Amino acid sequence: MNAVTGHAAPPALEVRGLTSGYGGREVLSALDLALPQGEVLCLVGHNGAGKSTLLKLLFGLHQASAGTIHLRGRTIQPRPDAMAREGVAYVPEGRGVFPGLPVRDNFALALWSARLQGAEAEARTEEVLTVLPRIREFWTRRAGQLSGGQQQMVSIGRALLSRPSILLLDEPSIGLAPKTFQDLMAPIRALQQKLDMSILLVEQNVGEAFAASDRVAVMKSGRMIFNGVPADLSDHARLMEMF
């Protein structure tokens, strides 16, 4: 709620009637979804439901054939460079790192890209290493020599350096043991609440993801079939029935 106008803030990101696909095959079909300002929305669905395609559309890595995308109430045509300037960070599924460079140089490149230097760059680095302290353990190692889970931490850490207002996370649990994923999500959740960040989290590990989420949306075959809160799906049998 805006204290000045008394009106609810527009969603951080919203799509209306979004349709898209690849090579004539439709992946998203007239999709509607809103990511509320300052909340974590967990998006779940079967493989091939279109979840990753949606994140690529929101960051400008793929184009819609119909529908609109809105950033804080404004209709936009997303492009990666413009979205980054607007405070949107995207962590793709898999390994978003430069494998031949040490972790510290991966961070240095992210700081350079965000035009951060000097004391501010050092402060941002320390902030991320406080949130993800295990990165210190492999700070000087080449990113390509790390385990999948360690690379995932580095990828998320690089995204957090810019202190984004909106974070798009695609399957961050890939390559992580359940306990490691829990250790990852808890500090990210704390940082999200501290900075009033909006997070769209695509995740299959629903137990840990729901624990760190305010809302849940379920996709099936390119359409939205459920929108609610984690407690609505505390009975996992109900969630499985949707697939």
Rank of each mutant, 00 (worst) to 15 (best):
D214F: 06
G87W: 01
T180M: 14
M185C: 13
M219W: 04
E93Q: 13
L167V: 01
K179Y: 04
G207L: 08
K179P: 06
G100P: 10
L132V: 08
A89Y: 05
S155D: 02
D183Y: 08
I135V: 04
G87K: 08
Q152G: 01
R142E: 05
M83V: 13
R104G: 03
M185P: 14
K179F: 03
W112G: 11
L160E: 06
Q182A: 10
W112I: 04
A190F: 00
G96F: 00
L200T: 00
R104Y: 00
I156S: 03
V97M: 14
W139M: 12
R215F: 04
G87M: 10
I199W: 06
E126R: 14
S198E: 05
P80M: 12
S113N: 14
G118S: 09
L191H: 03
D196K: 15
D196E: 11
A177V: 11
Y90G: 09
R136W: 03
I188Y: 03
P164A: 04
A143M: 09
P102V: 05
V97G: 13
V206A: 13
D183H: 06
E127D: 14
A82D: 11
R215V: 03
Q150R: 15
F138E: 06
E93V: 01
L184N: 03
T130S: 15
R163F: 01
F98I: 13
R163T: 05
G149K: 12
G144Q: 10
V91F: 01
R215M: 10
P164Q: 09
G148K: 13
P172K: 05
E127Y: 09
S213D: 04
E122F: 06
G144H: 12
Q193R: 15
A84V: 06
L116A: 07
S147A: 07
G157F: 02
E127N: 14
A209N: 07
I166W: 03
Q117R: 15
D105M: 12
L167G: 00
Q193M: 12
D170P: 13
